[in-house]
């Protein structure tokens, strides 16, 4: 009995290691996560308004049907990213999320920036360069330090009425998402 308990305990410990490995590795191997789904539809360095009629996408990303969504995917390995645009006078929020779903930065229209979005996203090396050499960036840009390179910017915009959706979608797609260092 004692020998059985010892082997069983070894199984439990090994099981614990497997469990921790699975939990830590799931984000790296997920093929149906938000990043992978958006990568199929998002153009490079541009905001795209998510299609309200695409029920499968809405279900997968668990979108709130009351809101309009604009997303831009980018890779800081190619340089810092600048997000610049003006949104309609309604409630909006923006989040910068890492590939694994961690939200690096988020703010809303009530945080004091009015209807303008001006964000510069830098990885640690670019942040160091920014501090040491002073990169030339546009005035009023908020600097976000991202610990990883592959990121998604998500803008949520609330259309007070359904009739406004098309115009609000155009506003979302007019937000620039570019690596041009001077805007």
């Amino acid at each position: 009995m004692g020998r059985f308990a010892l082997w069983f305990l070894a199984g439990l410990i090994l099981g614990g290691i497997i469990h921790l490995s699975v939990i830590l590795l799931v984000p790296n191997f997920a093929e149906r996560d938000a990043w992978s789904r958006l990568a199929k539809i998002a153009p490079d360095q541009a905001f795209i308004a998510l299609d309200h009629g695409n029920e499968e996408l809405a279900r997968a990303l668990q979108l709130d049907p009351a809101l309009s969504y604009g997303v831009c995917q980018f890779d800081l390995a190619r340089g810092p990213m600048f997000i610049d645009g003006k949104l309609p006078h309604s409630f909006w929020s923006i989040a910068v999320a890492a590939r694994d779903g961690r939200v690096i930065y988020s703010t809303t229209s009530r945080a004091g920036s009015g209807d303008e979005i001006k964000i510069g996203v830098f990885n640690p090396a670019q942040s160091r360069l920014l501090a040491e050499e002073g990169l030339d960036i546009g005035q009023g840009f908020l600097i976000v330090n991202a610990p990883s390179d592959q990121l998604t910017a998500i803008v949520r915009l609330w259309p007070d009425h359904d009739a406004l959706r098309q115009r609000y979608d155009q506003a979302l797609e007019s937000i620039s998402c570019t690596q041009d260092s001077v805007i």
Partner: peptide, 10 residues
């Protein structure tokens, strides 16, 4: 989050 596949809300 990875398993659910949802867009994160900050």
């Amino acid at each position: 989050l990875a398993r659910q596949g949802m867009l994160p809300l900050g």
